[in-house]
Amino acid sequence: MITEATRARFAAEVAKFPPEQKQSAVMACLSIVQQEQGWVSPGSEKEVADYLGMPVMAVHEVTTFYNMYNQAPVGKFKVNVCTNLPCQLRGGAQTLERLCNTLNVRVGETTADGLFTVQPSECLGACADAPVLLVNDRAMCSFMGAERLDRLIDGLRNSESQA
């Protein structure tokens, strides 16, 4: 269910575009939904479609085309580790492996407690800070060698247990 607060965020995105081009805000609206609900459900697609006055299928085309939309629920923390060449040269694969080992999951899986989902990722555009990873689409973490990776996982766990 999309709240009034969410609608206000939608409205700010729609306002950037000509009145007859509301569809241009679909990318932003879907990412807002994902930020608030953790994923983009078929029900949310319908609500976004109604809000923007576009066919549901046109919204679904967007959800399925772009890599970052979650088409199914994920853990509380979705962690995307870049494994592209510049990160590979600086230990990206080892970071992904260590993350999986620490959390006892395979790539693509979610931990049993529902806290972490681990995914590989294509270039995040921060190659000079390699290896990099992204937490919940919005928090880019730089220089993610073993020590910083362990600190990140511990920190996320602790912040969650205190919440």
């Binding site: 081009q21 241009s24 805000a25 990318m27 772009y66 294509e122």
Partner: peptide, 22 residues
């Protein structure tokens, strides 16, 4: 903003994306 598609760096793909399409 985009949401994860290298192809949108191609200028006409970017325009499509800006129009709210794949």
């Amino acid at each position: 903003h985009g949401f994860g598609a290298y192809i949108c760096g191609e200028e006409t793909a970017l325009l499509e994306s800006l129009e709210g399409k794949k």
